[in-house]
Write a protein that binds this DNA or RNA. Structure first.
Lengths: 257, 257
DNA sequence: CCGCACCGTTGCGCATGACGCAACGCTAGC
DNA sequence: GCTAGCGTTGCGTCATGCGCAACGGTGCGG
């Protein structure tokens, strides 16, 4: 173990543990993958990947299809998550907020958190319409093209904004914001009005409004959003929906300790 | 790394990863603990415990209270668990026909059967778009207002048609057929062209096309349908989609014993 | 049928990274 | 004030993580 905190203040990590945990993130993104692919993704030999996976599997954090098949995340994660105090706090309160808003607005409500360069949806409650937004729980979405992402950028750590400015913004539809300067303007507007919206920027026909959930000390914790087909959530509804979102988000944040 | 599966057939584990993951289990049981306690629990020195915890924390699987306080399970577990649960849901969906069509057409595909006075959806596979048709598996839908229902009426037992004619047809939207004579005409047209469609008859903005799955002896078994928001499945696409539906439905029916 | 490519697993031995020791600074309790 | 205990961090040793190579299995194409 050759130590020394590297330049950016990161404490020294146990490399083999770091690699094993990185595999979990890859599987969360990909759904499933083989040992050889996972090894390539991490820059390690497939035999190393196989051994790390065997250890993760022994603890139930991954499962393998068949004797020699691909790996996916395992149910042991759900058990561990169930035991976590953090889950009890934000997930319970977040779920209650989602359920309340979905009942009021009869549309899909999501709670998302910032994870690196993505918004990750951790809770979702759907309205009663058949044409709606499909299950996004666990899915990573691009920050610049989603209402949750804009909120997470506007209220979250400046490092996330800086990191995004240093990359080119991917286009998903003709409406996607791909100019960094324009995105900065939009984010300034988000901070001013207290909520964010998207109109067909991630996917044609999909609109959404989001508000920040902040802890009592002012830190951003999550983004609460309502999303729907654009014909049910047109621009002229945004302000009304945002008002409800902000009220529930503020109250949810107040209850977080 | 000295290998050799030990006596009980367990593959060799990467020791440091094993230790780190064991810490997660201890925290799940205990709620929170310090590095010294966790080290004692695992039989390792507290400095080793501290480094393993730092690595788990870098991945969000544990969180520390304050600068030098106790550790507890972290929010990263909730994110990973969410991804895991979503995958388990997806793995339950669909027959071969539903999967094949959804892959081809990239829309929601359902298989429904006739049950008394309703169409009951028994399988569903969704396309990749976020704005789509939510999970209908197990849900009963009205025969006269859904494409599956029209197929089940047109090709199914005449008793179902008679029973429906004896009741008043409920209106769901302005487009719903509520006149029994008109419905009879529509069903005759369905039998003639071999497929059925609905345009906003159950829900505004929801269109669908369906074809019959018949056993080799000609009996109606089920209805195979594709549904989507109307802007993605407008009337001028119905015939093309129906052609694919009928081909897959016919082949599926042929395979039924 | 065969050969080939690719997969995940496993044995092996090397060298590097995980480990324990020791020291440090901080906090809480007396 | 002092003491005890905490988590963190530098250091050097050696044990364990690593990549190489081989194996057996599977799928594909000729």
């Amino acid at each position: 173990m050759r130590n020394g905190a590297d330049g950016d203040g990161q404490p020294p990590l146990v490399q083999s543990v770091d690699r094993a945990l990185a595999m979990l993130s890859v599987l969360a993104d990909r759904g499933s993958a083989g040992a050889t692919d996972l090894g390539a993704e991490l820059g390690v030999h497939k035999s190393t990947a196989s051994r790390l996976l065997a250890t993760l599997e022994a603890h139930g954090l991954v499962e393998q299809r068949g004797e020699r098949g691909t790996y996916r995340l395992g149910f042991g994660l759900v058990r561990l998550a169930g035991a976590s105090a953090a889950q009890l706090d934000l997930s319970r309160l977040g779920r209650a907020a989602c359920e309340r808003l979905a009942a009021e607005l009869d549309e899909t409500v999501n709670l998302a958190v910032l994870d690196g360069d993505s918004a990750v949806n951790i809770s979702q409650v759907q309205g009663s319409a058949s044409v709606g937004v499909l299950n996004w729980v666990g899915r990573r979405t691009p920050l610049h093209a989603t209402s949750s992402g804009k909120v997470l950028l506007a209220y979250g750590p400046s490092a996330a904004r800086a990191a995004l400015s240093a990359t080119s913004l991917e286009r998903y539809t003709p409406a996607t914001i791909t100019d960094a300067a324009l995105l900065d303007e939009v984010l300034a507007g988000v901070r001013e009005q207290g909520w964010a919206a998207t109109e067909g920027e991630l996917e044609l026909g999909l609109n959404a409004v989001a508000a920040p959930v902040c802890a009592p000390d002012g830190r951003l914790v999550a983004a609460l959003s309502v999303s729907a087909p654009s014909y049910r959530l047109p621009r002229d509804r945004f302000a009304d929906v945002a008002e409800r979102l902000c009220a529930v988000a503020t109250e949810t944040g107040r209850q977080l300790g």
